[in-house]
């Protein structure tokens, strides 16, 4: 019984079947206010997001704060109920073919705040063994599994298993969080800013660990981050989000060398140069990201875009192919869109 529960999930659809298919995922948060607590506004946190995650790849999701990348992560594992949209895990639709509980066997998540994501009253061992226990694994098996996982993330169980979160450093806590996420033997790990709160030297340790775990356990990653350097290092493909929508998605080389969406280009040129002789001389875009409560019309980026034209203010561009499995949502890339830089239809 217990051994069966801890065994990795079988591959259903074969290697060509994407592990995760997201179709038109949408979540609008109501803003309550006034005397009667009525809905006065809505935040379009995630607005019609569609993408696939292939088996064994790492998909990086980047964007600025409020772009909906963390909400997307939580929607994928149903910590938030989507308003609309479909999630298929290995070809099986969540809600019809498989239950949310079954989805969560295959998909687990690591959170940014390593302290808040561990129960301060539980030992490390109990935190890791919690998942297997609630799935009916016998106590000793769950504890053995926890020790095994601690070893895998580079922490000697003899030393750490009985410790409490506040006795560990940030990097060690994040290792524990990774071990905890692996306790149910998932196939897909959603990493929500897993290294953002860590110091650089510790960040590198955790990134190495993630790369090693992925190779040895055959995992698939969704890596959410605002740090373009880290995303470039770890991802195979990159998805750029802006105000709840996909701005651009493509292989990491194409995104970093041949970005087609002006927002992606702005993000990339906003990265500090690391070269004292070639300091950034001009900010790529002016102003702050707009407030997601009252998003602009048409293309959400038109308020900050140097190439914005009339069409951008009125019509939202759809994702269009701009290269080998590379798509961008920009009127300049859509033939016949009416933008002066677009090809004629």
């Amino acid at each position: 019984m217990s051994a069966e529960l801890l065994a990795p999930l079988p591959d259903v659809g074969g290697p060509a079947q994407p592990l995760l298919e997201i179709r038109n995922l949408t979540k609008h948060f109501p803003i309550k206010g006034g005397m009667l607590n009525r809905t006065v506004a809505r935040v379009n946190a995630v607005d019609g997001v569609t993408f696939d995650v292939a088996k064994g790849e790492t998909l990086g999701i980047v964007g600025e704060s409020g772009c909906g990348k963390s909400t997307t992560a939580r929607l994928l594992i149903r910590l938030i109920e989507p308003d609309q949209g479909e999630v298929r895990f290995d070809g099986q639709t969540v809600g019809t073919d498989i239950s949310v509980a079954e989805l969560r066997r295959g998909v687990q998540m690591v959170f940014q705040d390593s302290f808040a994501s561990l129960n301060p009253r539980l030992t490390i061992e109990d935190s890791i063994a919690f998942g297997p226990r609630v799935r009916g694994v016998a106590n000793t098996d769950a504890v053995n599994k926890a020790h095994d996982l601690l070893r895998r993330v580079g922490m000697a169980p003899e030393q750490y298993a009985r410790r409490y979160p506040h006795e560990l450093s940030g990097g060690q806590r994040q290792r524990v969080n990774i071990a905890r996420a692996l306790a149910l033997a998932p196939r897909l790990l959603i990493l929500d800013e897993p290294v953002s709160a860590l110091d650089k030297s510790v960040e590198a340790q955790v990134l190495n660990l993630l790369v090693d775990l992925k190779a040895s356990l055959g995992l698939t990653y969704i890596f959410v981050s605002h740090d373009l350097n880290v995303v470039q290092y770890i991802s195979d493909r990159v998805l750029v989000m802006y105000l709840g929508r996909v701005a651009e998605i493509g292989p990491v080389e194409s995104i970093y060398t041949d970005a087609r969406h002006p927002y992606t280009r702005a993000l990339l040129s906003a990265m500090p140069s690391m070269d004292p002789d070639r300091r950034t001389q001009e900010a790529p875009i002016a102003g702050d990201p707009p407030n997601p409560i009252n998003p602009p019309s048409g293309c959400l980026f038109h308020t900050r875009c140097p190439f914005a034209e009339a069409v951008c203010k009125t019509t939202a561009p759809a994702l269009a192919p701009v290269g080998e499995s590379h798509n961008a949502a920009c009127h300049m890339e859509i033939a016949g869109s009416g933008h002066s830089r677009a090809a004629r239809a």
């Binding site: 969560r104 959170f111 129960n119 919690f130 609630v134 149910l184």
Partner: peptide, 26 residues
């Protein structure tokens, strides 16, 4: 609202288990 409660939900625990192990304790 802390992440460890979300993590517990994500690992498939029932509301009762979450209250017993994660909420009452804290």
């Amino acid at each position: 609202s802390l992440d460890f409660v979300d993590a517990a939900r994500a690992s498939g625990a029932s509301s009762w288990t979450i209250i017993r192990v994660h909420i009452l304790n804290n």
